[in-house]
Design a protein around this nucleic acid. Sequence first.
DNA 1: TGATACCTCTGATTCGTATTAGTAATACAT
DNA 2: ATGTATTACTAATACGAATCAGAGGTATCA
Lengths: 339, 339
Amino acid sequence: MDVQRRRARQADVAKLAGVSQATVSAVVNGRGPETGIPEQTAQRVLEAVRQLGYAANPAARSLRGKRNRLLGVHTFESIFPVDQLDFYHEFLVGIEQQAVADGYDLVLFASTEDLDGRRRIYSDGMNRLALADGSVLLGVEPGSTELARLAAEGYPFVHIGRRTVPGTEIAWVGADYASAVREVVARLAALGHRRVAYVTGPDRMEVFLDKEAGYRAGCAEAGLPELMYVTSQLDPAWVDAAHAGGVTAVLAENEPLARQLVAALGERGMAAPADMSVVVLVTMTESGWSSLRIPRNEMGRSAVKTLTRILAGSEDPGDHRHLLPCGLPEDHMIGPPRS
Amino acid sequence: MDVQRRRARQADVAKLAGVSQATVSAVVNGRGPETGIPEQTAQRVLEAVRQLGYAANPAARSLRGKRNRLLGVHTFESIFPVDQLDFYHEFLVGIEQQAVADGYDLVLFASTEDLDGRRRIYSDGMNRLALADGSVLLGVEPGSTELARLAAEGYPFVHIGRRTVPGTEIAWVGADYASAVREVVARLAALGHRRVAYVTGPDRMEVFLDKEAGYRAGCAEAGLPELMYVTSQLDPAWVDAAHAGGVTAVLAENEPLARQLVAALGERGMAAPADMSVVVLVTMTESGWSSLRIPRNEMGRSAVKTLTRILAGSEDPGDHRHLLPCGLPEDHMIGPPRS
DNA sequence: TGATACCTCTGATTCGTATTAGTAATACAT
DNA sequence: ATGTATTACTAATACGAATCAGAGGTATCA
């Protein structure tokens, strides 16, 4: 037996079986007796395959078939950041599950990270994503020029998180923040809260707008005033004003703001939820907060499903947008207003 | 602007830049001014690349025998299994970090899963791994035929976990279980334990052998008797015998065995660590056990580093084997023997 | 002026597979 | 005998990128 033999090709199998390479191709691709290859020949070929340990070269196969069966996963931050471990992980779980189901492999784009830890789609003008048949885009990307360009090139991708880019029809899978936040406000109102404040950062991306819209809708439905506080750093003095103004519940857009809020409450001898109900809309990790449950796994799966639909030729943009329902917060830090 | 244009090839770039495909190939492969292509032409080509969003087709490159800067990650189980979430995740974090550092993208092989949830390297006669320049193999694979075949074909890979396959020199990165377990035994002995039992499953893979060897070495050094109990299901009655025989500490190879042990202790009105110190060697998740800390992140990094070294042409097998130190268990369930 | 070297680029070929068009051989009908 | 179908294959080609052996052109020198 040769110790150092290179991988067997169909041509080698063909020679051993005394047929042509085309016949080998036909046999190994399962086009058996029903498509003109008699049982006997097929067996002879398969025996040769076994003897030589033949395994198809996926590169050649892909090349021939135009598609790689590779789906890209591009994150605008590090895929497995330590501080956001659970956050991205669940998306990936969903993405992987669906990829398995659909028979795709995944490419995690890691090579595109520049020195400040950001990841760009177009690094030195090259679109590395093009390596995959299509990609799922994940994470917070403030600008939209890269997305616009990607869309303009006709590259198939699905963005996780609702996203609108003027002039292009972007495929996305989003969480239905608006409904969820509206529902949270309704719940608080039902508990008796009459003044529910909303603290959010200055960012104007779709995710933030959606939550804000939900808050406004909830307030309108329950007849509550809109009490928005837009800041990237919660001023402890705001708590005094809010408290004095009769605010008994606060929705904090993110965890840092919520932490600052709870700290400020603590400094003033108050606690959540006794003195103030606190709901965080988005947390990076499982935690003791009352927060929305973002359907990350489902979003990951749905993104891949949408992508495969696009790759299969689906042209209907309406079919490329999906809002998935959020789970509502548990009651750790929600209670009735102090009477 | 074309809405539906296919992926750009070098031929398209060539036409746009007014050069030949061969020239495009030369430029995009970095053979710049020093190898006969003047700055001006290179710029023209790169501009066309940029305009068309060109990225090399990895299948074509592979076929031609070139590198794709893709590293594969093959797991023998689902990469993100729900019940072992943290276990694999840390490896991946390390793998990704090193991939970023070295400028590689990662391919998670998900397409190779068969119906019973196992993943095979050679699925339906095709070695999909060949798409990547090399791969990191992860997870428990009982047989070694696939590994042997992969090695025989000269495919570059690094196995996470020490692995020996007769007749081939496999590259691996392992945890130094032997030293760690020896050290644990030494510690227990220092606390006054004179009879330390070892409960392990019937499996004979390297990881298990290493721990066993460490146990034996630790016992020998401390002058303790070897008290091995090999079972896949701990018989509660064993606890009576052990207790009667003066056993005051037990090393359990895995978490199920440890759980069974603690349950049996509980049924008998005993508790850990008061009545019996319990050390679990390997846990799937962070937990309240006293268990070894497997340097998963470091192992992931090291595996990628080793792989890149192999890809760079390193031939020295000694350079392809690395044992990384384990962290020793914390003292949750370890105490001095009941006097 | 012719020879030589060098620079810049191109045509043709290759990798392994899937597929298409087609060939040779036999069977059957007219 | 001639034409048509069927069976059982094969030769040739395309996929996209890399590479090799030059082809033209210009510069330099004798």
